[in-house]
Amino acid sequence: NIFRILADLSHLASIVILLETIRKARQIDGISLKTQILYVLVFCTRYLDLLTFRWTSLYNTLMKFFFIGTSVYVVKLMQDCKLTNPVSYKDMMFRDTFQIKYLLGPCALLALVFNYKFTVLELCWSFSIWLESVAILPQLFMLSRSGKASTLTTHYIFALGLYRALYIPNWIWRYYSENRLEKLSIFTGLLQTALYSDFFYIYYRKVMKGRGFELP
């Protein structure tokens, strides 16, 4: 359905924006390495089904490889910055102070409690779905501490937030057309979108009206 396609395109766009930002500017100011590492973990644990060869579609498989590949590549690009632009790297590390153990622990626990089946694959899947919902927090925390961000960085965060927000009408669509109700995805998707709500509001007020992103 249209929402699902737009959502996935928005997700692709966010990654392209991020890669272009890092490659062109040759700096990683305002981008959280911790959030990017969490995404590597999210995709690697979610797409373990690639190993079972029970593929749903070519589209699905290609996208999964794309998300795993680009998330690893982003982390590598950011690590390269340690040598190519040490000032930018140090500045990023100085600001990227969110303690991710407070996300990993609870997500692991939630995965043990809420899952569809008590198997390694399903537990990893559930862990990834919980972790994705909060993976942006180090990034948002960094943003709120520095108070402003480059326009490109805010476009990246917006596109990334929009992707999960668009999955919500997709789930409503699927409920009516296929009678499908995937409770875990829906709940964590709502949680994830809620975490972005504040950012969406400021993005709408400032960036869409041509002003820079600056927190009140």
Binding site: D8, Y116, E182
Partner: peptide, 10 residues
């Protein structure tokens, strides 16, 4: 039930 669901989303 939920167990029958396939993860066909990304």
């Amino acid at each position: 039930s939920d167990e029958a669901l396939t993860h066909d989303e990304l």
